[in-house]
Design a binder for these strands. Structure first.
Length: 804
RNA sequence: GGAAGUUUAGCUCAGUUGGUAGAGCAUCUGCCUUACAAGCAGGCGGUCAUAGGUUCGAGUCCUAUAACUUCCACCA
C-alpha cells in the first residue's frame, strides 16, 4: 500500500542507497546484449557545480536510462577531470599562494587533497540527483591509469610523427606562466589607447605616422610594414626608419596583410605583438626580439624600462614620447583582446621549446570527421566545422606547470637528444626516474622534462580511458567508436575537437557515432551562469533538497537540446504537480488491484481506446528518445498521462467501484487496462522520475513482474500495430464527455448533476453505443438518444435539479 | 568580416514530411466529483518579426530585411 502522501526526502535517499548497494546500474561485462556506450563528461575539479552542469548531466542520464529500459547493456562510466591548470588555479586561490612559491611536491600534494574534497562533494550530488552512472568504478585524469594512457598516447603519436618538439612561437600566459592553446583563448573587450607616433625617415626631417596600442613594444620593433599597393606610402620602401625614443633603425617591408586604410597604413612589427606578427616573422624570416620575460616584465631590450610590468612600461614610454615631441595624438578605443580563459590575462606570444601535436596539416581529415558524425542538434555541426576551418596554431600540449601528467621524456645531457621511456615502463615520472639505457651517444646522464601535459591531452582520451576501465588494456580501441559523446556547446572546439583528433591519429577511427550537445542555462536575466556566481539559493544541492531530485530532473528534461534557456522556477511547479498526480493516481488505481493478477478479458471500447493510444504514444516516445529529443518525448508522455487520469480513469472508476452494477467482466476489463497502462507509464516516466516510479513499482509491481528494480525491467511494449480508427472513434467519446462538462460548467452546476437525456448524431453510433454505460456514468446522463448523421453533433437535454 | 541560432497568446515555450494555430503559467468563471483543492471542469487571449515569392493551400519551403543571442576571425 502506498502512503497517503509521498515524502520525497525519505524515499529518494532510500532508493539511491538501494541502487548503489545492489549495483542496479552495473555494466554487464561480457553480456551478449547490445552495448550502448557513453563517453561521460568528467567534471572539472575546480569549484562548484551549477544548474547548467546539472541539467546537462540530467540529459545524459535520461538517455542512459532510456537505453537501459530498451534492454541494452548501457556503459555509463564516470570520472573526474582533476589534473591541470583549472585545478591549480583553484588551489592557488584557496591557499592564496602561487604554485611556484612552494616546492613542487608540496603543491601537488595540496592539489591531491583538495580534489579529494571536491570530488566527494560531486559524488554526493550525483548520487542525490539519482544518476545511474557507475559510481563505484570511476576514473581520475590525474590517476595512474589515466597517466599511463596519456603517456602511451604521447608515445604512439611521437612514433607516428604527429608530435614534435620545437622552439616556436606559442601562446603564453604571463599570469599562469605557461604556454596555452588556441582553444583556451577568450575574446575580451578592453579599453585601450591608439597612439599615433612619429617614425622619422633616416637622415631627414620627414616622418611617417605609425599607430599602435602597444608603445612599450617600441623597444622590440624589427621592421615596419606597408601594403605593396599603397601608393601614398610606396616611397618608403627603399628608406630606413628611426624607431622613436629608442633611436635604432629598421627597414620598411611590404605585405598584403597590411590594411592601407587602417591608421596611417604603416604598421610596426615586433616579434611578437600579436598573431599577425607571428605570421610575418615566419614569412619574412624576421629577427626575433624578446621584449618580455615569462612573467610579463620588460627585458633588457627596454633599457631603462627593463623590469617594469608591461602596463607600467607603456605609461612611462608614452611620457617619454610626449617629452620628446614624438607623440602626435592619442585616441581612446575599445578593442577585442585575446585573453587566457583560465585567468583573463591578455595572452602574449613567447618563443620556447614546446611539444606540439600537428593539427594544421590534417585539417581536411579533421573537417571530414565532423561531417561523418551525427550531431544532435544538427546545427551544432557548423560550430565544429567553423572551428577546424579557422585553426591557426598547432596544438601546444606542454605546460610549464606542475599538477599534470608528466612527459615520459628526458634529454641527453651530452647531445641533447630526446629520450622517450619504454612503453612497458609507463607511466613514468622523469623527475624521479631515469631511462633504463644510455643515450645513443653513450652518455648516461639525462635532464628530465619539467613540463607537464595540457589537461586536454588527457581528457581527449576519455573514450580510451573509459575502455580501459573495462578491458584493462591501456590505450585500446575495443569499445571505440562509442555510441554517444554528450557535452555543452562550449566544449565543441575543445574537448570534442581534441578527442576526434586523438582517435583519428591513434586508430584512424571516429571516437563515437553520435554527439548530443546541450545548451546553457542562463540566469533569469539571460546572463551566463558562472561557477563563481553560484550562490546557495540556486545551488543544485539546495534545489534538490527543496524540490526533490525527480522534480529537478523534470525541469531539466524540458530544456530543448542545444538551446540556451533562462532559469525559471515555473517548470519546477509543474514537476511538483506531475509527481503529485502520479502518486495519487497510482494510489487510486492500485487500490482496486490489490489481489489482482492480469488476465486477458473481453475489453470494453474505452479500454481498447486507451490501450491503442498507449501503443501509439510508445512508438513516438521511443523514436523521440532515440533522437535525443527528451523534451518532446516527455511532453507527449505527459499529455497522454493527464488524459489517462482526467478522462480514462474518470470514466472507468464507476466500473471499478461497482462490479455489482456493471458486472465482473466490465470491471475486469478496466482492471486489466489500468494494470498495464499504469505499468507502462511508470516505466516511461522512470527515465526522468526514477525515484517516485521506483517507489510505486517496488510497492506493487516488482513482485508480480519478478524484478528487483523498475530501472532494469524494460519498457512495456504492447505492440506497434496501432488501430488508428479506434483512437479516432474513442476521441469522439471524449468529445461527448467534454461537451457535457462544458454545458454543466457554463450552467454553473456541479459535474455530478444529472441530465435527462443527450442526443448524439454521428456515423459511428454503433461504436458509441458500446460505451453507453461508461458515457452515462461519467456524464450523469439518464438516457442517450442516437441519430444517424454524417455530421457529428451532441445535443444536451435538461438538467435535473439536485434537490430532487 | 565569416558562420549558426532565435523571433508564435501577457509570460515560458511546443509545433515532425506544407492541410482549420497548441501546451503550461498568468488571468477570469464555476465545481468539495466515494485518488488528488498541491485537485477538477470551462472561458478569455495570436495578421505565427517584416516584405515579397512558390503553391489550390505557408507558422512550416524560397528570397530579402530587421532585432536579439552565440561561436569564430580581426586586434597594427
Amino acid at each position: 500500500m502506498l502512503d497517503k502522501k509521498y515524502n520525497f526526502l525519505d524515499k529518494e535517499a532510500k532508493w539511491q542507497d538501494y541502487w548503489f548497494d545492489n549495483d542496479i546500474y552495473k555494466f554487464e561485462n561480457g553480456s551478449k546484449k547490445k552495448i550502448f556506450a557513453i563517453d561521460t563528461p568528467p567534471p572539472t575539479a575546480n569549484g562548484k557545480i551549477h544548474m547548467g552542469h546539472l541539467s546537462s548531466y540530467i540529459h545524459i542520464e535520461t538517455i542512459a536510462r532510456h537505453h537501459r529500459m530498451k534492454g541494452e547493456n548501457v556503459y555509463f562510466p564516470f570520472g573526474f577531470d582533476d589534473n591541470g591548470l583549472p585545478t591549480e588555479r583553484y588551489v592557488e586561490k584557496i591557499i592564496k599562494k602561487k604554485a611556484y612559491e612552494l616546492p613542487r611536491a608540496t603543491f601537488i600534494n595540496i592539489c591531491l587533497n583538495e580534489i579529494k574534497t571536491l570530488e566527494d562533494e560531486f559524488f554526493d550530488l550525483y548520487k542525490k540527483a539519482g544518476f545511474s552512472c557507475n559510481l563505484k568504478t570511476h576514473y581520475s585524469s590525474i590517476g595512474p591509469r589515466a597517466q599511463k594512457i596519456s603517456q602511451e598516447s604521447f608515445f604512439d603519436l611521437y612514433n607516428k610523427g604527429y608530435i614534435y618538439h620545437q622552439e616556436a612561437p606559442a601562446l603564453w600566459c604571463t599570469e599562469c606562466q605557461t604556454a596555452c592553446a588556441q582553444s583556451e583563448l577568450e575574446d575580451k573587450d578592453i579599453e585601450s589607447t591608439f597612439n599615433y607616433i612619429k617614425f622619422y625617415i633616416s637622415g631627414t626631417d620627414d616622418y611617417v605616422t605609425v599607430a599602435t596600442t602597444r608603445p612599450e613594444m617600441l623597444c622590440g620593433v624589427v621592421c615596419v610594414f606597408i601594403n605593396p599597393n599603397d601608393e601614398k606610402n610606396k616611397h618608403l620602401l627603399s628608406k630606413k626608419l628611426v624607431v622613436p625614443y629608442f633611436g635604432y633603425e629598421v627597414e620598411v617591408l611590404a605585405d598584403e596583410l597590411v590594411d592601407p586604410e587602417k591608421g596611417s597604413g604603416v604598421v610596426m612589427c615586433c616579434t611578437f605583438g600579436d598573431t599577425t606578427d607571428k605570421e610575418w616573422q615566419r614569412k619574412h624570416n624576421l629577427q626575433i626580439k624578446k621584449c618580455f620575460t615569462d612573467d610579463g616584465r620588460m627585458t633588457e631590450l627596454a633599457k631603462e624600462f627593463a623590469g617594469l610590468k608591461t602596463l607600467d612600461a607603456r605609461e612611462q614610454v608614452i611620457a617619454k614620447l610626449k617629452e620628446n615631441d614624438l607623440l602626435i595624438k592619442q585616441e581612446k578605443i575599445v578593442h577585442a583582446v585575446s585573453t587566457h580563459d583560465r585567468c583573463g590575462t591578455p595572452v602574449e606570444i613567447a618563443v620556447k621549446k614546446q611539444w606540439f601535436i600537428d593539427v594544421l596539416s590534417h585539417k581536411q581529415e579533421l573537417y571530414d570527421a565532423g561531417l561523418k558524425l551525427n550531431w544532435h542538434p544538427k546545427s551544432m555541426r557548423a560550430r565544429y566545422l567553423n572551428w577546424v576551418e579557422n585553426l591557426a596554431w598547432n596544438w601546444c600540449i606542454s605546460r610549464q606547470r606542475y599538477f599534470g601528467v608528466p612527459f615520459p621524456v628526458w634529454y641527453c645531457k651530452n647531445c641533447g637528444k630526446v629520450v622517450i621511456a619504454d612503453k612497458k615502463d609507463l607511466p613514468v615520472d622523469p623527475l624521479t626516474s631515469s631511462p633504463n639505457h644510455p643515450c645513443e651517444c653513450g652518455c648516461n646522464e639525462f635532464v628530465p622534462e619539467n613540463d607537464v601535459m595540457d589537461t586536454w591531452a588527457t581528457s581527449s582520451l576519455t573514450p580510451q580511458i573509459c575502455t580501459d576501465l573495462v578491458t584493462g588494456k591501456g590505450l585500446d580501441d575495443t569499445m571505440i567508436p562509442m555510441d554517444l559523446r554528450p557535452n555543452a556547446h562550449d566544449n565543441i572546439r575543445v574537448w570534442d575537437f581534441y578527442t576526434i583528433t586523438k582517435s583519428l591519429y591513434h586508430f584512424n577511427k571516429l571516437p563515437w557515432t553520435d554527439l548530443m550537445i546541450s545548451g546553457y542555462v542562463t540566469s533569469e536575466d539571460g546572463s551566463k551562469l558562472a561557477k563563481s556566481k553560484a550562490n546557495s539559493q540556486n545551488s543544485p544541492q539546495e534545489i534538490i533538497k527543496t524540490y526533490s531530485a525527480d522534480v529537478t530532473r523534470y525541469w531539466a528534461s524540458n530544456l530543448t537540446l542545444g538551446k540556451d534557456t533562462a532559469f525559471s522556477f515555473v517548470e519546477f511547479e509543474n514537476g511538483k504537480k506531475l509527481v503529485n498526480k502520479l502518486w495519487n493516481v497510482s494510489k487510486f488505481v492500485l487500490s482496486f488491484l490489490e489481489d489482482y493478477t492480469p488476465k486477458k478479458v473481453n475489453l470494453e471500447v474505452v479500454d481498447k481506446w486507451i490501450l491503442e493510444k498507449y501503443k501509439d504514444l510508445y512508438t513516438k516516445f521511443i523514436k523521440n528518445l532515440d533522437n535525443y529529443e527528451i523534451a518532446l518525448a516527455i511532453n507527449e508522455l505527459e499529455s497522454f498521462f493527464w488524459n489517462f487520469c482526467d478522462n480514462y480513469v474518470e470514466i472507468v472508476k464507476r466500473r471499478l467501484y461497482n462490479p455489482d452494477i456493471y458486472g465482473e467482466e466490465k470491471c475486469n476489463s478496466a482492471k486489466y487496462t489500468c494494470y498495464y497502462i499504469l505499468l507502462g507509464v511508470l516505466k516511461m516516466f522512470s527515465i526522468v522520475l526514477p525515484h517516485i516510479t521506483e517507489e510505486i513499482y517496488m510497492d506493487y509491481y516488482a513482485e508480480k513482474e519478478n524484478q528487483k528494480s523498475i530501472h532494469i525491467s524494460n519498457y512495456l511494449d504492447l505492440g506497434s500495430d496501432v488501430d488508428q480508427s479506434i483512437i479516432a472513434k474513442g476521441d469522439k467519446i471524449i468529445d461527448i464527455v467534454s461537451q457535457v462538462r462544458q454545458f454543466k460548467s457554463v450552467n454553473k452546476v456541479s459535474l455530478k448533476t444529472f441530465i435527462k437525456d443527450i442526443t448524439i448524431s454521428s456515423n459511428i453510433n454503433s461504436f458509441i453505443k458500446e460505451a453507453e454505460v461508461d458515457i452515462k456514468a461519467v456524464c450523469s446522463v439518464n438516457n442517450i438518444i442516437y441519430e444517424d448523421s454524417q455530421d457529428f453533433n451532441v445535443k444536451i437535454g435538461e438538467l435535473i435539479p439536485e434537490d430532487k
